[in-house]
Simulated assay, not measured.
Amino acid sequence: MSIINRLDQVFKENKITNRVIAKYIKRSEGTVSKWRNNKRQPSMNELNKIAELLRIDVRNLLNKSDWSESKAPTYLEFKKSLKKS
């Protein structure tokens, strides 16, 4: 699984504990741990709540996307392939 969020880095940098986040978001510490280890992902609403609590931009909780090396078709390429089918 790819590393989607930066929660572990942000939490370490700011000395944030899973316990405090879990209580604020009303989730279990185990759930927050899974988010932190990228085994599961929080919803956008949950990410927004964390960002608000930490007073940071929600985008700082996510890794930037770089599709420059992607082998997946673009939207237009895929759309064209559907017409051929």
Rank of each mutant, 00 (worst) to 15 (best):
M1H: 09
M1W: 05
M1L: 11
I3N: 13
I3V: 15
I3A: 10
I4E: 10
R6K: 15
L7V: 05
L7Y: 06
D8I: 02
V10W: 06
F11N: 02
F11H: 01
F11A: 03
K12Y: 11
E13N: 13
E13V: 03
E13A: 05
N14A: 01
N14W: 01
K15M: 08
K15T: 07
K15E: 11
K15H: 12
K15D: 12
I16N: 00
T17V: 08
T17L: 05
N18C: 14
N18S: 13
R19F: 09
R19I: 13
V20T: 12
I21N: 02
I21M: 06
A22W: 04
A22C: 07
A22H: 02
A22I: 06
K23C: 03
K23R: 14
Y24T: 04
Y24H: 15
Y24E: 02
Y24L: 09
Y24W: 04
I25N: 01
I25A: 01
K26G: 05
K26H: 10
R27C: 07
S28T: 15
T31C: 07
T31L: 04
V32R: 00
S33T: 14
K34Y: 11
K34W: 06
W35R: 01
W35T: 00
W35E: 01
W35K: 01
R36Y: 02
R36S: 08
R36K: 15
R36F: 02
N38M: 12
N38P: 09
Q41P: 03
P42H: 00
S43F: 03
S43I: 09
S43P: 09
M44C: 03
N45Y: 15
N45R: 14
N45M: 12
N45T: 15
N45A: 15
N45H: 14
E46V: 13
L47M: 14
L47N: 05
L47Q: 05
L47S: 07
N48P: 03
N48H: 09
N48W: 03
N48G: 11
K49S: 10
K49G: 04
K49H: 06
K49W: 02
K49L: 14
I50Y: 09
I50A: 08
A51F: 09
A51T: 08
A51Y: 07
E52Y: 07
L53I: 06
L53Y: 14
L54Q: 13
L54W: 11
L54D: 11
L54T: 09
R55S: 15
R55H: 14
I56P: 00
D57C: 02
V58L: 05
V58Y: 04
L61C: 14
L61Y: 13
L61D: 11
L62D: 05
N63S: 07
N63W: 15
N63E: 12
K64P: 07
K64H: 08
D66T: 07
W67P: 03
W67E: 12
W67Y: 13
W67S: 11
S68Y: 04
S68E: 12
S68C: 08
S70M: 10
S70F: 01
S70L: 12
K71V: 14
A72C: 05
P73R: 08
P73V: 06
P73I: 03
P73Y: 07
T74N: 04
L76I: 11
L76W: 05
E77G: 07
F78P: 01
F78N: 11
K79N: 09
K80E: 00
K80D: 01
L82I: 00
L82P: 00
L82D: 00
K83N: 08
K84N: 06
K84A: 00
K84W: 02
S85P: 05
S85H: 08
S85Q: 10
